[in-house]
Amino acid sequence: MPDSRIVIFEDSKHLRESLQIVLNGTPGFICTGAYHNCSDLLHRIEKDRPDTVLMDIEMPGMNGIEATRIIKASFPDVHVLIQTVFSEDAYIFDAICAGASGYILKTTSLTGYIEALQNVSSGGSPMTPGIARRVMELFRANMPERPTTEKVELTAKETAVLQQLVTGKSYKMIAAAMDLSLDTIKTHIRNIYLKLQVNSNTEAVARALRDKLV
């Protein structure tokens, strides 16, 4: 399996270089670019061809939320993992609505960064402990219920998996919690996506909360 390609946008030189060194020294990862701002953003993404972008929110010029929105519009298959000092609701909600796959705080250890990037690569939506619950509350407050004539028929196992997704757990964490294989969890999640007519964890969580499926 090829190494997961990571691009970093981080204005702190120390953190940027530390992350770059750690990533390049970790099997399964390669850092193909590290930048202190988001100038010439799309050219850099096209040149570096990342699988995942590690994105700071506060940088000189364009902020990380707007950069995330632009990346997802032009490169929808590229994951964006937000890393920031901000835990305020507005930042969290805006980042997820912009298309971020996960949201971690800079208090996270370097090992925690690697685990979060591994989770994103395996289809998870990593969040610093405490953030996931706030995300649930934000979606409940901001996603209006919509009347629907279609009834979603999830199995008991699918409902349990969806509940785990809502808490922000990665596929591996869900598999461990439910004592099931990773492949079985992936099968359940594919079925959930199909039944909910969604294409990502974030959409599945939003639909689950909006329609009170869990």
Rank of each mutant, 00 (worst) to 15 (best):
I70W: 00
S74I: 00
F75K: 06
V198A: 10
I92E: 09
I8E: 01
T202C: 09
D183Y: 02
A90N: 12
G124P: 01
V80G: 07
D56G: 06
D51A: 09
Q118W: 09
V161A: 11
I96M: 15
G64W: 01
M59W: 04
I6Y: 06
E88M: 01
V161H: 03
V120H: 07
F93C: 03
L138V: 00
E158F: 08
T111V: 01
L23I: 05
F93P: 04
P147H: 13
I114S: 08
A176L: 12
T26M: 03
R190Q: 15
V120C: 12
S4G: 00
D183A: 12
H43S: 14
I70D: 04
L196C: 06
R49N: 12
M178D: 12
I131V: 11
D56C: 01
M173V: 12
L154N: 04
A177T: 14
I6R: 06
T108Q: 08
K169G: 08
D3P: 10
H14I: 15
V152A: 10
V80K: 03
G33I: 05
I192N: 11
V78F: 03
R190V: 00
I131W: 01
Q20P: 02
A116E: 02
T52P: 03
I96V: 14
M62S: 09
E158N: 01
V198Q: 08
T107L: 09
I104H: 02
K212C: 11
Y113A: 07
A208H: 06
R44P: 05
M143A: 15
A141E: 14
A98I: 01
F9Q: 01
I174W: 02
T68Q: 08
P27G: 02
L209M: 13
Y103N: 04
G64I: 06
N119Q: 15
R190N: 15
E88Q: 13
M127N: 10
N24M: 01
G123S: 07
E58K: 12
I131D: 07
M136Q: 15
I30L: 10
T155K: 05
A160P: 00
A204I: 02
R146Q: 15
P50Y: 01
I92G: 03
V135E: 06
K13V: 13
S122H: 14
S121G: 10
A90D: 14
L81F: 03
G25C: 02
Y171G: 00
